[in-house]
Design a protein around this nucleic acid. Structure first.
Lengths: 222, 222
DNA sequence: TAGTGGTCTAGACCACCCC
DNA sequence: GGGTGGTCTAGACCACTAA
């Protein structure tokens, strides 16, 4: 069904910007139930192919969708998937009062306690990613008594703590001396940086800043 | 319906990794039709919350390999959305034989002709993005006779040329002298770089390498 | 207010795949 | 083989919104 509609769009029966017939007419035309047409069209909307408005009808999107989807894998799985051996090292672990910049990001009260971790993930013993992690101890008190010597915070959190909202941002930063050293890169070299914040029902859970080794590329197809 | 299921997951009735009851049981429990449960669950699968396998059942994904979705706006619209004034300048326009590295990327025959464009997008007269663009002239012959003095290739292509597949990749690169100069940045400074390739039915259409001014961040929430 | 999509029901058959 | 999800039907009512 979905294929049949797609074919017509590709064939030019319904060029970009054109209106499609209503669900009932299409159902007759294809000889199937209206619910079937409806489902196929709803899927095409989520695929970014169609655009629907009540009372107006369904149109083929004229400017093809410009949405990209990323799956953010666990770093361990990402490394293993390349065929390399995964390695992990904890560099720093400290409980502290939340820094001001992080208070704003996680929406925490003043003097909230956070666990700060810094660790390195290796692929075949070569540094792959430096993870700077802050965990809100009022949201995740168990974290205070876990040592993170063997298991990375990423792995641990994913199994322990659900979240409802997240924010991701990508950027390029010049490697700070400490980061550069841990990554085995030159000072100031361009580092791909991913920041991720997660909340559970409005309460900030954790913030991570991930620094990737030089030449890392994050790729997606659609 | 979808909400009801999500609530239970959040509430911990079905913790990560747990199996949910079958569709028929759930339908009884919620007092609704099986098709309704089915649709809600399928949607939760596409949201990355659930995982389903025939004969095995439905589970809550333990590692929410959640997908982040980006909307890649037209650069012009992105700049205007910040309240700044959009500016555009064409720096270079040349028809040439496709370079080898690009042949592989676009899947072109040797000696295919491509149009190479280099331009800068400004926000309030400050360089915002440098666009390095290659267009396959056998796929888009009209491009050869368009001068791109006033309209950026991005704007033009989006209106003229459909595509069926695309690949996006993000990385951090040290600014090459030419790029640095155009961006008004220091040589070697960290530049966020986005590469985008699009195909139409298997035929490479265009490749773009976008270099953003320092401190650019690409952000998404979900 | 009329017409569109959005959602649901109750039932049916099929495809897959672990046991 | 048998239980699971995948998909479909035919019909119904609701919600939104442009005219």
């Amino acid at each position: 069904m979905k294929k049949a509609i797609l074919e017509r769009i590709r064939a030019g029966t319904w060029p970009p910007g054109a209106s499609l017939p209503g669900e009932i007419d299409l159902a007759k035309e294809f000889g199937c139930a209206r619910a079937t047409v409806s489902r196929a069209m709803r899927e095409l909307v989520t695929d970014g192919i169609l655009e629907r408005r009540r009372k107006v009808g369904t149109r083929v999107r004229s400017a093809p969708t410009r949405r990209a989807e990323f799956t953010i894998p666990l770093i361990r799985e990402e490394i293993i998937a390349t065929g390399a051996q995964y390695g992990y090292a904890l560099v720093e672990r400290e409980i502290q009062i939340v820094p001001v910049w992080l208070r704003a990001q996680l929406d925490l009260p003043a003097k909230a306690r956070v666990l700060r971790l810094c660790c390195v993930h290796f692929a075949d013993n070569v540094p792959f990613q430096v993870e700077d992690r802050w965990i809100n101890l009022s949201a995740v008190p168990e974290a205070a008594s876990f040592d993170f010597e063997e298991t990375g915070p990423n792995d641990w959190l994913v199994r322990k703590v659900p979240f409802t909202n997240a924010e991701l941002s990508f950027s390029a930063t010049g490697a700070q001396p400490r980061i550069a050293e841990m990554l085995g890169a030159a000072h100031g070299s361009a580092v791909f940086t991913l920041e991720r914040t997660t909340w559970l029902e409005g309460a900030g859970v954790t913030f991570a800043r991930l620094h990737f080794a030089p030449h890392y590329k994050m790729t997606t197809r659609y």
